Simulated assay, not measured.
Amino acid sequence: MKITVIGGGHGSYAAAADMSGKGHEVIWWRRDHGAFAPLLDAGEIRVDDHRGHRAQPIGTEGGITVEADLGRAVAGAETIIVPIPAFSHPDLAERIAPHLTDGQVVYLPPGSFGSVIFARAMADAGNSAKAAFAETGTLPYLARKHGGNRVVVSGYATRLPTGVFPAHDSERALAVLTKIYPVEPVEDALSGALMNAGPVIHPPLILMNAGPLEHFAAWDIHNEGTQDAIRRVTSALDAERIALRTALGYAAPHFPLADHYTADGDEWMYGNAAHDKLTDSGDWREHIDLHTHRYMTEDVEIGLALLTSVGHWAGVPTPVASGLLAIAGAITGRSPGSGGRTLAALGLDGLDRDGMKQVLREGFLS
């Protein structure tokens, strides 16, 4: 399969290496093309995971092709994998919209309802191609970059609940994605967005560890930062997410975050005992700036803002999410929802439930 990978973060490095290692033709694009220099100089991307150490060639025949032009990068690709932060979606959506063609599947892992941003950008660009946008609840990889040409993958996703926009194209889009990832169908893109684990796991961890994060040069919020009091808040926040999914008629499994922490519950997105894999790696002992880190700018100001806005629209209380969002605003001095991913910001808050279902199923009809 010809696959385009977008971005230069941890997930993009892991995706490019993973897809190339599985024998797919991989084209890789990022906004800052010059940042590919360490990879091109080395001629390879080094991968460390449970299978050991290996290298995938870069820029040579049979290897990953890095491309400076976005149009050329996506031309002919069956799947476009976009593991970039949600706050980068609007810019990429505008750039990529004119280039998408019939049958292409754009995968946002995770999406935070970004599928509607990409679809609307296509409509605004006057591109009527029948592309599909899919989103899931997490990155397919527990991964961290080390230097300019090495990525360490501590775990691979084993279950990726995935919704498609427009939903009427789900069967086709998911058939494509099943060839490369362990996707499981959910009802639509909003259902997929409400599987996003980041806005549930990260806000309590950074906000309730704010003191240590500002005091120590590096702190592992997933190791010593995960205490019982914080887990109880996380569980309450996740209960709000699940109550919202239930109220909207979305079916189980809801992938409760509690299963991420246990070895004997239902298999979560990264398999059983995924939390242990993450903490054992040591790769999440890091400096987190509470004003700029993506846990704040993406998971709080986009993810929690989306969750609370959907709750308000659906008449489902979200007091824990709202409280965390307010505390975050006090820390940063920015208004809640400054990430621009509320239903109001997306222009969807005026829909009733039937209208929302229509948009989710059919897309933006002209």
Rank of each mutant, 00 (worst) to 15 (best):
Y250M: 06
L278V: 05
T297F: 01
H291P: 02
R285M: 00
P199A: 10
F216I: 04
D276F: 03
E214C: 07
D280W: 01
M195Y: 09
G271I: 00
M195F: 07
Y270F: 15
R245L: 11
A243I: 10
F216Y: 12
D238H: 14
N196E: 08
T262R: 14
P199D: 06
T226I: 06
R232L: 14
R231M: 15
Y295M: 02
G249F: 05
D266S: 12
T292P: 05
T292N: 05
A229G: 15
G225A: 08
I230F: 14
I302F: 00
G303Y: 00
E224Q: 11
P199F: 11
D228P: 15
D220Q: 08
P253K: 09
L307M: 10
P203E: 04
A243K: 12
E267N: 09
N209R: 09
W313G: 05
L278T: 03
G211Q: 15
S191R: 11
S309D: 12
D289V: 04
L307Q: 06
D259P: 06
L306G: 01
A263I: 07
A239I: 07
R241T: 12
L324A: 05
G282R: 05
T318V: 00
H291Y: 05
W219P: 06
G198W: 03
A217D: 14
T297D: 01
N209P: 12
I242H: 09
A263G: 13
M269A: 04
A258V: 14
M195E: 06
W284S: 02
D289P: 07
R231Q: 12
D276H: 09
A218W: 09
D289G: 08
E267Y: 07
H222M: 14
L194K: 02
E240L: 14
P317V: 04
A273D: 15
I288P: 13
R241L: 13
L205Q: 12
D283N: 15
A263K: 11
W313F: 01
A305N: 02
V300Y: 02
D220H: 10
S191V: 05
A236R: 12
N209V: 08
I206S: 09
G271Q: 03
V300A: 08
D259E: 07
L324R: 05
T279R: 13
I230D: 15
R285P: 04
A252Y: 10
M208K: 06
T226N: 15
A197M: 10
V300C: 11
G282S: 04
L307R: 03
